[in-house]
């Protein structure tokens, strides 16, 4: 659906050249929710603006559907933007228009007749759950409602691709959840491709299928989301994953636990999918007759799987430890001995 081929973007000011995007290549499939995560200044905002031609690449090519974005004439690009729409961190609604008028704006630009615009806007108001609010002005809405208007507006011309520019970063956690669920829902019902940029790993974890990690203009890691969490390779990815599951707290605890139980072995059990639901602790207790201290545990849900880890302290001989590791590997549980 979307092919980004060796794309670079250099901004030139009088005093300096800034290379915002460096030699990025990505392929995004149709119907996929693809996340791009990075700290601010990593180049993700520029990258997403290259996809709808708000910025043009200095070199490289971007192909969406059958069109190469850089090769389109101005008129063709305007037409293409009706099929590659965008939502924004600060919603960017027109304060001078009501909810319904905002939603109808792309339809006016596309040249639809008045009755058709009204009809389509009504459908979208129902889709995003804003019935009863259609004649309010944006200033009378909450942040979450404003983003719903933004989403309805972006969907009005039945796009093939939806670009989300930090769409939940200005929202509180609860509203973020609502907006993310809405995005999942419209992907299911409308089958569109969603590309989102964010600096919150939580957003990637909750709705993305695959994600790219950006640092300093480059894509440093691309993988299915579950793999990013289980097996982050790059340092930046590890930081994002650790921030999301608050591992630092656990590490602190381990230090103090070691002092309290100097003879205990501390194990980190990592599990994914089915392993996350199996009663492994009681199995260990029954089968090996162990005394187990549970130190900390964590389970997170991605849009398709669960993954997590559990820290336990046990008094165990080396021999028995190998038996335990063998047994747990049958349940797809990865065991690490914390030092």
């Amino acid at each position: 659906m979307i092919d980004i081929l060796k794309v670079s973007k250099i901004f030139e000011t009088k005093s300096q050249k800034i290379e915002a995007v460096k030699d990025v290549s990505l392929t995004i499939d149709k119907g996929e929710i693809f996340g791009i995560i990075g700290y601010s200044g990593a180049g993700k905002s520029t990258l997403i603006r290259l996809l709808n031609g708000l910025e043009l690449p200095t070199s490289g090519e971007i192909i969406i559907g059958d069109d190469s974005i850089g090769a389109l004439s101005k008129k063709e690009l305007r037409k293409k933007r009706q099929k590659v729409s965008m939502i924004f961190q600060h919603f960017n609604l027109l304060w001078s228009r009501t909810v319904k008028e905002n939603i109808m704006m792309p339809l006016e630009i596309a040249g639809l007749k008045k009755e058709e615009r009204e009809k389509r806007a009504d459908e979208l108001i129902d889709l995003v759950g804003l019935r009863g609010r259609e004649h309010n002005y944006p200033s009378e809405l909450s942040g979450g409602q404003k983003q719903r208007v933004g989403i309805a507006r972006a969907l009005s011309n039945r796009p093939e691709v939806l670009l989300c520019d930090e769409a939940t970063s200005a929202l509180d956690p609860e509203t973020t959840e609502e907006v993310l669920n809405l995005l999942l829902e419209i992907r299911e019902t409308l089958g569109l491709t969603i590309v989102l940029i964010t600096h919150e790993m939580e957003v990637i974890r909750k709705i993305c299928d695959r994600a790219a990690v950006m640092e300093d203009g480059r894509v440093v890691e691309v993988a299915p989301v579950l793999k990013l969490f289980q097996n982050p390779e790059h340092g930046v990815t590890k930081r994002f994953v650790r921030d999301d599951i608050d591992d630092e707290d656990t590490e602190l605890q381990i230090e103090s636990i070691k002092k309290t139980f100097p003879n205990a072995t501390i194990l980190k059990l990592g599990f994914v999918g089915t392993g996350a639901r199996a009663p492994i602790v009681s199995m260990l207790v029954k089968k090996f007759d162990l005394d187990i201290n549970i130190l900390s545990g964590n389970i997170k849900n991605t849009n398709e799987e669960s993954y997590g880890h559990l820290y336990i302290a046990v008094n165990i001989t080396e021999e028995l430890l190998y038996a335990v590791i063998d047994e747990l590997s049958k349940e797809n549980v990865k065991v690490e001995v914390a030092q």
Partner: peptide
């Protein structure tokens, strides 16, 4: 941001002025 949003919808300059 509002101007950028309008441009992301494929607006022409004349429409940008009066809309």
């Amino acid at each position: 941001g509002v101007i950028e949003a309008a441009e992301s919808m494929g607006i022409r300059t004349l429409e940008l002025i009066y809309k």
